[in-house]
Design a protein around this nucleic acid. Sequence first.
DNA 1: CTCTGGCTATGACGATCGTTATAGCCTATC
DNA 2: GATAGGCTATAACGATCGTCATAGCCAGAG
Lengths: 194, 194
Amino acid sequence: MTRSTSASRQRIIVGAADLIRRRGLAGSTIRDLAGHSGAPLGSTYHYFPRGKQQLAAEAVRFAGDLVSRTLEQELAAGPVAGLRAFLTLWRQTVVDSGYRAGCPVLAVAVEEPPADGDPEAIIAAAEVFTAWQRLLAASLGEHGVAEPAATQLATLVIASVEGTVALCRAHGDIRPLDDVAAQLEILIATAIGT
Amino acid sequence: MTRSTSASRQRIIVGAADLIRRRGLAGSTIRDLAGHSGAPLGSTYHYFPRGKQQLAAEAVRFAGDLVSRTLEQELAAGPVAGLRAFLTLWRQTVVDSGYRAGCPVLAVAVEEPPADGDPEAIIAAAEVFTAWQRLLAASLGEHGVAEPAATQLATLVIASVEGTVALCRAHGDIRPLDDVAAQLEILIATAIGT
DNA sequence: CTCTGGCTATGACGATCGTTATAGCCTATC
DNA sequence: GATAGGCTATAACGATCGTCATAGCCAGAG
């Protein structure tokens, strides 16, 4: 039953990531975090003994890895292809949710970590941001962009997309994302000289 | 005593903005929101009868107007000067707080508005973002940047700075902001042809 | 079949949530 | 110095918070 066990645990994580990206971490109760995937409250503390912070950290890592995999795949066809995939991913998230869902990593990053105990969640968020940024920076480097421009551009892309997703939610409009997409594509294409 | 009244009310708003940019809205209790400026809980509902949402909305507008005024002032010397002032403002916020404070407008924008009643706070957040974006876009237009580039660039700047502030908080490092600043400055300077 | 152990179900703990109500203070005006 | 009203102080409301404890269920190993 190791299989079924993992499945339950995984479903809690997936549900937690979905709820956090909508309501934030402080806005999501452990009961809702569990209930969003149909799991009972008791299971949450069985699988995540350190409580809310641990579950949030795992949800952030899950969402982060999901994006990282897509990013890595599409970057094989070059930085512009990777950028487009990254943008498309967030466009779907925002539009499909009716402008109610954002990025769970950002949601955790803008909240205060607990004063007592390890701030697992925000550390996980920082690691995810770093992972995305490195993937993009490496791809830019491989396509002829020198340092420090490659690093700076990669950070700019991650930051601007995260910020734009929040803008779209506030406005209830996808236009900010499309506007930023247009400028980023020009910027990256120019940087790699194509 | 209209003066003293306004002063108390204003101090609550200022304190609320400071707390929200650190803890988020859901992470800040009404008691803390009041107590952060030394005001009693009762005063909160006296000045803001519609409760937490109203106070949050006024805090967002206060912080937004503060930034708007600085932005408008510095943009008189051109888009690059305005950009630099905008970046410096956020740099101070993040560094001076020891990477514990971010942007209260973004904090509200990434949270779910209440299901019942008017979502005053997130509407205020959207209006603030629009105000900033229009100021910058207008300045770019006055310096020869045609549409839609002016609008797109302005949105890119706002979004990327908001996102970067969150990145800096997560990492406990100011470098993302400096990296983004470098790229944005090149981008804007190039766009206006200087 | 028996037994073991992972998982669920249930309920409770004290603390704290947003909000409301009301009684009293305190200053400005006449 | 009395009066009025803006503001504060205090207590309480039901609901819900994160967390923990424990009893029971149920599949797989012996």
